[in-house]
Amino acid sequence: MSIPVRPAAAWLAASAALLAVLVTAFAVGKFPVAPGDLLRSLAGRLSGTGSGLPAAVDTVVWNIRLPRVAAGVVVGAVLAAAGAAYQGMFRNPLVSPDILGVSAGAGLGATLGIYLGLPLALVQGIAFVGGLLAVAFVWRIAALVQRHDPVLVLVLAGVALGALLGAGISLVKIISDPYTQLPTITFWLLGGLNAVTPHDLAATAPAMLAGLLPMALLRWRINLLSLADEEAAALGVDVGRLRLVLVAAATLSTAAAVSLAGIVGWIGLVVPHVARLLVGPDFLRLLPASLLLGAGFLVATDTLARTVAPIELPLGILTAVVGAPFFLWLLARAGRQA
């Protein structure tokens, strides 16, 4: 099913595409920055001598665009990697990183925080903790049920808890102030990078990177979790422990990403799928491919979100509007070639 491509050329092309997306993201917007000015500003920063450009240009590049683009890179990469790991370990290409309730938990935490009028940093903190708690709860329930396939029990418990938390989110939306709080809640639930500050990024990046690390280090072994548990165990895998480590890692990074950017749907589901069509299912290549594609896709979508319309569009809407047709096109193309 994978499209045959020469590996080195493909990595080079993907990296070049990501670079192009990043440059575009820095250049376009309400205050356009010409690529030449971008280079001069960068050179000025690196040499420490100043760029000689108007102060507004440097401010836009370093204080406004950089945190936003950097957040897009990390959040996109994290969501795509977590999605790839989850699809592998749940043996199902239709799984997204919030299957165990991390988004629902974070969503309820954030909506409650907004409803109570808490400051943004606290809202993010509650969202983060809510996401972790939801998955820990699901894991605990699944551990108590021993009679069935552990993977199936995890997914079912996640779906059930997700529904319960979703009901809680709806309740808070109904009782919240429709003019001040509801738009904020709705925007948060659809995701966005517009409110990201360098401080937010610095606060959440360690958790996102700490979650990515085990996934990257254990990436070959993730392959073996896509086998039946007993098959993997007979090959020498400590299945229970490996799954726990990966679920914890994916949850930590996803919860941090969601607390920073809200619930950006679709990326964790579809980017790993696209990566698999391009490089095949082996995590040795699938994980780096998902990281690159996820980062590029989210930054590109965010750039569109702040340029296509007079108002800023929620990311979750655009990831679906841009991603779904592209995904369907790729699916049809791969189907013809197979």
């Binding site: 290409p93 392959n223 698999r276 299912p281």
Partner: peptide
């Protein structure tokens, strides 16, 4: 569930 090659 995933199209691993025979070698993989």
């Amino acid at each position: 569930p995933f199209p691993y090659t025979v070698r993989q």
